[in-house]
């Protein structure tokens, strides 16, 4: 799909470095992915795999001054048709895109809204900045947005403060905020993780509905493969700061090629019940991020690992719409 449709977002060989007390680490190294207009790409990985850092770098929101993009490109096609490298864009230009063309929904609905401003003010602030509306019409727009995300009594609730709302409601507000200026790309960083299961389903359905209506591309970050199956068109799997596999959601679930993807899928309840070797594969500690060592990062945990896996650099091989970073993917049965 990504081959024939021109990409909305195309991240190429991204590397991110952080300065820490114990020297520099690279939590993201060699991330390549793309999102087409109207498409949902799920970025999957365990915590610490670098998926959140990747999404923050698109917005230019890496914690400063510790973090920085140290290599690669983040190409984004603006509404005007121009393609820019977000990693190299001056901050003032990036601000013009934030909230307007690229919007973000965060994991923690309880803390992601400003407690001393009403939800209406917070949405209207963005609308006034990017759409040039006046105070009254911006507030009107905020009300419409609350209505759009299915918050009842929007007219009244637009004047409420975040603490007067439940977690699910607040996440709806966050979504309304993100959608308020009709972005062409939505980044959703684990938007349902902090919510109850029933609320999760509602929020997912809401994001899907809005995506269909507005036609934006979605970069959906999650560690939950159940969510992936429900929402994604394509999947990119990350492990220890690298992309290990990319493919359409059907292919990934049917024929995973990377042993790590396979291991992840085996943890799904439906699959785990089928085979005896269900959880055996994910053993020992997760791959340590950032330490640039030799060989495949997953090798120490991989049941298929052989000597060659421990040396050299393993490249991401691309064939048709699928990519995989494994020396032995042709030999290993899915």
């Amino acid at each position: 799909m990504s081959m024939n449709t021109p990409s909305l977002l195309s991240i190429q060989d991204l590397e991110i470095r952080f300065r820490t007390e114990d020297g520099e680490i690279a939590p993201v190294r060699g991330v390549t992915l793309s999102v087409a207009p109207g498409e949902t790409l799920a970025l999957v990985g365990e915590s610490g795999s670098g998926k959140s850092v990747t999404s923050l770098s698109v917005m230019g929101l890496l914690p400063r001054p510790a973090g920085r993009v140290s290599g690669g490109k983040i190409l984004f096609r603006q509404r005007s048709g121009r393609t820019v490298d977000l990693a190299a864009l001056p901050l003032s230009d990036l601000r013009g895109l934030r909230g307007a063309e690229i919007a973000m929904v965060f994991q923690e609905p309880m803390t992601s809204l400003n407690p001393v401003l009403t939800v209406g003010e917070q949405i209207a602030e963005s609308v006034r900045l990017h759409m040039g509306l006046g105070h009254a019409s911006a507030l009107k727009r905020a009300e419409e947005m609350l209505d759009l995300v299915e918050i009842p009594h929007a007219r009244r609730r637009v004047h409420e403060y975040p603490h007067q709302m439940s977690g699910g409601m607040r996440q709806r507000v966050m979504i309304a905020l993100a959608m308020s200026c009709n972005p062409s790309l939505l980044i959703a960083d684990e938007p349902t993780t902090a919510l109850d299961v029933t609320i999760q389903a509602q929020i997912l359905a809401l994001i899907q509905r809005l995506q269909r209506e507005i036609g934006m591309g979605v970069l959906f970050i999650t560690h939950n493969l159940g969510v992936v199956a429900e929402i994604a068109d394509r999947v990119t799997v990350m492990y220890a700061g690298q992309v290990v596999e990319t493919g359409s959601v059907g292919e990934i679930f049917r024929t995973p090629r990377h042993p790590y993807t396979n291991a992840l899928l085996n943890c799904l309840p439906a699959r785990a019940r089928r085979g005896e070797d269900g959880r055996r594969v994910v053993q020992s500690i997760p791959g340590s991020i950032g330490k640039i060592g030799d060989g495949c990062a997953f090798a120490p945990r991989c049941v298929h690992a052989t000597d060659p896996c421990g040396v050299g650099t393993v490249l991401l091989e691309t064939e048709m719409d699928r990519s995989v970073r494994c020396l032995r993917w042709r030999e290993i049965p899915a």
Binding site: R95, R98, A100, M104, F106, S112, N114, S126, L129, M174
Partner: peptide, 14 residues
């Protein structure tokens, strides 16, 4: 260092 500051930045505010 609070989360809503990141939200504010993500809106493109100065």
């Amino acid at each position: 260092s609070d989360d809503y500051i990141r939200t504010a930045r993500s809106k493109g505010l100065s």
